[in-house]
Design a protein around this nucleic acid. Structure first.
Lengths: 340, 340
DNA sequence: GCCACAGCATGAAACGTTTCACAATAGTGG
DNA sequence: CCACTATTGTGAAACGTTTCATGCTGTGGC
């Protein structure tokens, strides 16, 4: 809190005016090099640090963009964060990450604060997608917003998403091809579009070629999956709305002594890193996670650029099914003692 | 960007002075309730949003604290984030999360920005712990800093850490008790104190009662663990510096046809959620991850409070060994067909 | 010797708050 | 009716920048 040195001190020390110091900082080419050097010296000697509040106040807006994620704890989102950071960095913009934790109240508070801070723009996966008045207000008042992983028919904003219907279909077709006739879909709540779409996708793919049942979960976490595993019954394959859920199901089934994939196949969704790293590597519908973050950021920066007129765009990525052991032909194991 | 309404507009609309509006906002009890209501109405009608830059400029500092993590992608850190957020929320403070991604340059840039923003305080797990001049400067200029998961002998700051020596010892004793005689430690780089301490801990515990070898990794990721698995040789147990590495090793070994725990036992470190969720649930040395974040935040807020005089404290938590299948007695499996 | 002009530097206004000393009004007790 | 206090409201200063119109110098062309 001792930071008491402003541009004014620097100016005095260098024997120049305030305006000159500002010029050294912002348009150094306008300042004679000797003067510039004197100012620069003064700056380091005094340990001067620019005051961003004052800058922003003058500028009318900050130089950051925000990314509001549903759950920092979900590796899917942390990968999105990485993508967004990478893209932002290329433009010299900083990303501040906010975690709503699937709590509408927290989301609201974050948005309040972000608006007070006059962030340049917001990337967000909203907690609920029903007419979200807070978010709507933000947009209406002029803050660029890009929806992440939420297809939006609305034309009032850009969005980046993955075709979840197709994803579900891919999983369904794969399982049917593998000869499964009794499949269970695990996920919830159904209020989440992703869950609905992925389910719809598999329904469409299966089309009478297999029986499809549903085990509904309260959220998309490992714990929920573990709990759901107890209810899985009379199925030879499970399609989970999420890799976290899939990992939970895998664990739950294993604990029941049910072998994966010999007894039951599992297909997850997202293809988070831990899917491949599971001891029974998980088949999963891959979403281009980093790409999602990158593109969303690019769209946002574009909108910020186009200040006035801007054509909102909706980018939809195609998911890709990654088949691994959990749903592939059981591979031959050659157990052997470690060491040669 | 259309946000053109300031306190001034509100004042005009409500027919009061600027000062009164400010009072309504900050000390409503000083304003007669009728006036207050009029102002409040004007605020909602105009969609007025406070300008935080101006506020901060006046106040001299922001109202946020920052948490700079090494790797948002590591579930260990996301849990720390959650803890910090919870503690901060209780105090009405917002946490902004910054990701250094183990890149000193990015860390530096984040700190620069944070200082320009006059953050109230910083929680950080620094990339390198050598005399970090940037961080030192920050502290010296008066920003409270708490080191997270980095024991610091220094008395110039608070710190929160876990006793890694003990953690390593716990793992070592457990493995020796289980009768293992050839143990491999997997982790790196050795420049990271955590890695060194955990290794030192197991060395101490094993003390001639078993052979100890080391497979060194470039970093602490799943990929690194997977690669390391190829080099594990002639061991009956593996102790990994990290759960991510442990998961990688687990996967690598399984792919080589080596069974866990029958052929080789594995113990990880951190006890991230995915450790328990692995199909062979991972034994792991548990760190109180959320607690770490909570306590660090509490310490920071305390220091901010104590503005002038403040006694720096160093909190050290005790880790706890969680034994699961990966290193327990192989449990009996009862394979059976799903469905009854 | 004068003018025009480039190259630098200056000073003041403005950004939107908060704060604080003070003014205005009304109520109270003597 | 006065002196006081309590209760509300006011206006201006200050926070640290950026920006812009303006001022000052010295140089080269005529």
């Amino acid at each position: 809190m001792s930071n008491t040195t402003g541009i004014k001190e620097v100016a005095r020390r260098a024997g120049v005016s305030i305006g000159t110091v500002s010029n050294v900082l912002n348009r150094p080419e306008l300042v004679a090099s000797s003067t510039r050097q004197r100012v620069l010296d003064a700056i380091t000697e005094l340990g001067y640090v620019r005051n961003d509040s004052a800058r922003q106040l003058r500028a009318g807006h900050s130089r950051q963009i925000a990314l509001v994620v549903l759950d920092v704890t979900n590796p899917f989102f942390t990968d999105v964060v990485r993508g967004a950071e990478a893209a932002a960095e290329e433009h010299g913009v900083m990303v501040v990450v906010c975690n709503s934790g699937e709590d509408a109240g927290r989301e609201q508070r974050h948005l309040d604060l972000l608006e007070e801070q006059r962030v340049r723009g917001v990337l967000i996966t909203p907690v609920d997608e029903s007419p979200n008045s807070r978010l709507e207000l933000l947009i209406q008042r002029g803050t660029p917003v890009v929806l992440v992983d939420r297809g939006s028919g609305r034309h009032s904003r850009c969005s980046v998403a993955v075709d979840d219907l197709l994803g579900g279909r891919l999983a369904g077709e794969h399982l049917v091809e593998q000869g499964h006739e009794r499949i269970t879909f695990v996920g919830g709540p159904a209020t989440v579009t992703q869950v609905r779409d992925r389910h719809a996708g598999i329904v469409e793919a299966v089309q009478g070629r297999a029986e499809l049942s549903v085990v509904s979960t309260a959220n998309l976490t490992v714990a929920a999956g573990r709990a759901a595993a107890a209810e899985i019954d009379d199925a030879t394959a499970v399609f989970c709305a999420n890799d976290l859920v899939a990992l939970g199901v895998l664990q739950g089934l294993t604990q029941r002594g049910i072998r994966v994939p010999q007894d039951v196949a599992i297909v997850g969704y997202d293809d988070i890193e831990f899917a491949a790293a599971a001891a029974v590597p998980l088949s999963s519908v891959r979403q281009p996670r980093e790409q999602l973050g990158r593109t969303a950021t690019a769209l946002l920066l574009e909108e910020i650029e186009d200040d006035g007129r801007h054509e909102h765009r909706h980018v939809v990525f195609q998911p890709e099914l990654i088949v691994r052991e959990s749903s592939g032909r059981p591979r031959t194991r050659r157990p052997r003692r470690i060491g040669r």
